[in-house]
Simulated scan of single mutants.
Amino acid sequence: MARASKPAAKKPAAKAAPKRTSGASSKIAKTQIIDLVADRTSLNKKQAGDAVATMLDAIVSALKGGQTVGLPGLGTLSVAQTAARTGVRPGTSERITIPAGKKVRFKVASTLKGTL
């Protein structure tokens, strides 16, 4: 007679520890910022979303207009001109000219820098 085997006892699934990564790979999304604003103010999520979107639009518009944007306790955003320069195309080692352009610079506020 064949013996019926006992079913193996199931082990409780081990919960994976949350991944802790350093620096740039762990970021807060816009929706999370909206949730934080809604939680810390008397605004609902729609109003908080509108407020965050309006603030971001104002920052982008100011930067496009060449203005500097100061965010107290965080830092300063500004637009800087970059000069034309010679570069090397990866893979082919061909010399190329990179045209002049603009980039956004960020200078961290000393208060934030001191607390990091």
Rank of each mutant, 00 (worst) to 15 (best):
T41I: 05
T111G: 11
A24H: 07
K19N: 02
A58C: 15
S78E: 10
R95P: 02
T21V: 14
T86D: 00
A100E: 03
A53V: 10
P72D: 08
S22M: 14
I59N: 04
K45M: 11
V52L: 02
G66A: 02
S5M: 14
V37T: 04
R89T: 08
K102M: 06
Q47A: 14
Q67P: 08
G101E: 06
I34A: 01
S78W: 07
I28C: 02
K45F: 11
I28G: 01
A38K: 01
T115S: 15
T31R: 15
P7K: 14
I28R: 04
T115A: 15
K102H: 12
K6A: 08
Q32T: 13
F106M: 00
R95M: 04
T41E: 02
G73P: 02
L36C: 09
P7D: 05
S78H: 09
R105Y: 06
I98L: 09
V37N: 00
A9R: 14
T115D: 12
A16C: 07
P7C: 08
I33Y: 05
K45N: 10
A17E: 10
S26W: 08
P99I: 13
A109C: 04
G66N: 01
A14F: 07
K45L: 10
A100S: 13
I34S: 00
A4T: 14
P90T: 01
I98F: 05
A80M: 14
G91H: 09
V104M: 05
R89V: 06
D39T: 12
D35H: 12
L116H: 05
A109H: 03
Q32M: 06
